[in-house]
Design a protein around this nucleic acid. Structure first.
Lengths: 185, 185
DNA sequence: AAATATAGAACGAACGTTCGTTTTTGTCAA
DNA sequence: TTGACAAAAACGAACGTTCGTTCTATATTT
């Protein structure tokens, strides 16, 4: 769907609220009303953009990581895929942007986003568990804590990369990941 | 300044773009034009809100930390102050919100925010350096890396606290901080 | 008297949304 | 293979509202 593809990239830059029906219609060479008819409301459009992003995220980030050998290699693959995901969107990861934007705005959009974020954290958790099972992590590691630590790292990467655009950001992320993995081994 | 006080809290919830002249005027019992006259443009209002936030941040977070004994105690004080700062704003730390919102919007607001974020990271850096000087950190630690690690931790706290509002978030942050400090000692 | 702060009214532009109409598409009988 | 016809998709125009901003006028303070 070309509408959602353009909408997603727009949302990553200007936020889901910044995706106006008119501007999105222009970018896709459609009329406002023609585009609007697909979604019936702006709120629905925002949710559909998140759904679309979720499908892409699963395809490009999660599934390929799960095809990698469990343990440290899988975690490294996940981070690598996530960084590519971040790089492929003009404004960076849509979920990071949307989380900041909608954490205080009740409604369908926030509800759906929350569900997606819980799923994401759950994925991190399971990947940590499989790392324990194959012996890459200690048996007593707190998987929830690992999810928090790893997600924090990615959030730091996002901010450094998009706002500060520090040339050493990539290295910072790699060093932090190595340290994180060392702490859990 | 009551306008900036209300505007800051509003911005923390709805973003700097979400602070409309009309709604801010209503909340402060002023007319749109009367309020507008103070700032001459919305962009100026946004910058003034950031400036105001910066003054409060220095007063409430940075300065009290610098009055604490350098090294680990100072770092712990800084984090404690930052968490209070986060809790005192309805939508959480304005700089986190604004960074996500303006990382892809060129202009005065982004420029000023960038300066503030560089200052903040510089503060983290100096606090790490003083920790080396008093012997709390190893002599060979990379202070820039420390800044990245600590800021990442705070960003993780922000997201968990505001979006997921996980009851264990506080504990997660404390555990992560202890681990981080241990890595640098 | 001069300077500053606030007010009210109005501006054009953009917003999301609704409406009725036209164009495109797919299906089936001739 | 064609023509009729219904369904779906896209359209332009307009709606009421809100947006940031400008103008002019009236208080309040110095």
């Amino acid at each position: 769907m070309v509408i959602l593809d353009v909408g997603l990239d727009m949302a990553s830059q200007y936020g889901l609220e910044g995706v106006s029906i008119g501007s999105l219609a222009n970018l896709t060479n459609m009329s406002k009303s023609g585009l609007f008819a697909h979604f019936q409301s702006k709120e629905n459009l925002q949710v559909e953009i998140l759904k679309y992003a979720g499908r892409l995220f699963a395809e490009d980030v999660i599934v390929p990581a799960l095809k990698t050998k469990p343990g440290i290699p899988r975690i490294k693959a996940l981070v690598k895929n996530w960084v590519s995901w971040e790089d492929n969107l003009t404004g960076g990861c849509i979920f990071v942007t949307a989380s900041a934007e909608f954490s205080d705005r009740p409604g369908k959009v926030r509800d759906y986003l929350l569900k997606q974020q819980r799923d994401w954290i759950d994925s991190l958790l399971r990947i940590a568990q499989s790392a324990i099972e194959v012996g890459d992590f200690r048996k007593d590691v707190d998987c929830e804590q690992f999810a928090f630590d790893l997600y924090s790292l990615l959030l730091g990467f996002h901010l450094y990369d998009k706002l500060l655009d520090d040339s050493e950001t990539k290295k910072r992320q790699e060093v932090a990941l190595e340290q994180l993995l060392a702490n859990y081994q």
